[in-house]
Design a protein around this nucleic acid. Structure first.
Lengths: 156, 156
DNA sequence: GGAGTAGTACTCGGATACATTGTGTCCGAGTTATCTAGG
DNA sequence: CCTAGATAACTCGGACACAATGTATCCGAGTACTACTCC
């Protein structure tokens, strides 16, 4: 099981955007960590489609958070980047097995599927229970100077 | 985030092997659900490497469980097939950011990384807390005839 | 009839191709700011 | 000096390549069983 690099990039980017009110261009956002700008842009587009970011075209445009950081969970970001489908894909192989019934929906009744689903739910719950604002608060608690540093780097 | 098909296949296969004591060939195991035998074999090799299955070469050989089903967690199987590394890969991009310190291990101190790790831990804990024996018990509870059906299909 | 032996069928195991997804880049459409010219 | 218009610079957005991983297959090495031959 693997998550794309984009998850790390977009999470940090959202965190950075939480310190700034105005739109910030992809070039600046990528410049902070020296990431490939075009590729980061591609991922931010996904966040914009999911209404997590707002994209502002034209000069002095860029991206800004679409809503309060407290209303953006880590799960929202992960789902926007990685897609909505579950990690474990039940193909209902039980249908082909002995005693398999083509009319039964094994993706809900199969015990294996249920167990995997439950685990994934625990993962989702953990991510859903933590917001960008929560993470931001932890960052400030550890180093109160971060917001100002980021603000300068993004708006100099 | 995606898990390979092999996870579903190997879990069901382990479950089936729980009803049988003697080694069963890949061909029979694959035949139950009409899976590609050679590919299933490849995955079962991975389980054998992790000491979850024992492979018996030669005629009348095959695979059997290496230990009691109660001692095989779902996590064991998933890890054997998908690998041991975590889904979220922290590349420590904070090192490149403003105020980044090359001497700090951000994979442990970065708040984003911590949050993702915690979620993954919840997922792992859920899988580790459920064994093949647990699942098998649920199956029998739902349909007591399954063990016999599988046994016949695998040893006819 | 029994034992030894050669042969055969069956098994895993790894090396080898193909398909799908993740990663990275480029150029065009659209918008805003700026500069210029006219009133 | 103020206003309107044209120009130019900057931004997102999607279409386009490349790399890595997942998926699938094939054939060889080794083992157990079987049948045959010889004593």
């Amino acid at each position: 099981m693997r998550l794309g690099q984009a998850v790390e990039w977009t999470l940090h980017t959202c965190l950075n955007l939480a310190w700034v009110g105005e739109p910030v261009s992809t070039a600046r956002l990528a410049g902070i960590y020296q990431l490939p700008p075009a590729y980061l842009n591609k991922q931010l587009q996904a966040l914009a489609r999911e209404k997590i970011l707002v994209s502002v075209p034209g000069a002095r445009g860029g991206f800004r958070l679409a809503r309060d950081p407290a209303e953006i969970s880590l799960l929202d970001v992960v789902v926007a980047v990685e897609g909505r489908e579950e990690a474990f894909r039940c193909t209902q192989i039980l249908r082909n097995g002995p005693g398999g019934d083509p009319d039964i929906d094994y993706s809900s009744s199969c015990v294996v599927s249920q167990s995997m689903r439950r685990a994934e739910l625990a993962w989702r719950r953990e991510l859903a229970g933590r917001t960008i604002a929560d993470v931001a608060a932890d960052v400030v608690r550890r180093d109160p100077d971060v917001p100002e540093r980021i603000r300068v780097a993004l708006t100099n």
